[in-house]
């Protein structure tokens, strides 16, 4: 795993060369996370968004056989040491539909929220957001760009560095 450490509010890049390294990154995020954190994942189909959530939720104590894609069921909840709420906006037609889900009731609460396809519902997400852009750079290698935009996400990101 290559880490490129930078200052607090600058993007932080991290490259995973394999799924095992993605697992390690998920564990690192899990170790740094705190209740109330909202993570917005951005990346095309097959980029590895669900894979990173799976790695993080599993590291937080969730049953790995429960963590899968919420594309059709829209929200999944996993119960580890901290509750993890896993949203997927892929099937939603507009931001209103995301609001109708009652997503904001989960934000800033007792758990950690992951929102896949966060760019599609940007206006409905909290200002304090840990944005993660996922890009495939080789068949199994992924680049993760972290950007924090508020006190909680900045604390979490600085703990990761």
């Amino acid at each position: 795993m290559t880490l490129n450490a930078t200052n607090a509010d600058e993007p932080f890049d991290c490259e995973a060369q394999s799924e095992m390294e993605t697992d390690a990154l998920g564990a690192k995020l899990a170790g740094a996370a705190e209740p109330g954190l909202v993570v917005g994942l951005i990346g095309s189909l097959g980029a590895g968004k669900t894979r990173l959530v799976r790695a993080t939720a599993t590291a937080l104590g969730a049953d790995p056989s429960c963590v899968n894609s919420p594309t059709f069921v829209l929200i999944q909840e996993y119960f580890g040491h901290i509750p993890v709420y896993h949203f997927d906006t892929y099937r939603l037609r507009d931001v209103q539909a995301f609001a109708d889900l009652g997503a904001e009731e989960y934000f800033g609460g007792d758990g950690i929220c992951f929102v896949e396809w966060a760019d599609r519902v940007a206006s409905e997400l909290p200002l304090d957001l840990l944005k993660i852009e996922v890009t495939a750079v080789a068949p199994t290698a992924r680049r993760f760009r972290f950007t924090a935009s508020g006190p909680v996400s900045q604390r979490v990101l600085s703990r990761m560095k």
Partner: peptide, 29 residues
Amino acid sequence: SGGHTNLYDCHGPTDFEWLGATIDDAAGE
């Protein structure tokens, strides 16, 4: 379906034992 890919051992009409499921995407997805 789009949301589920689940296998059960159905002992009776109301007694379903979970055998396994998808670990990532469902088949319909």
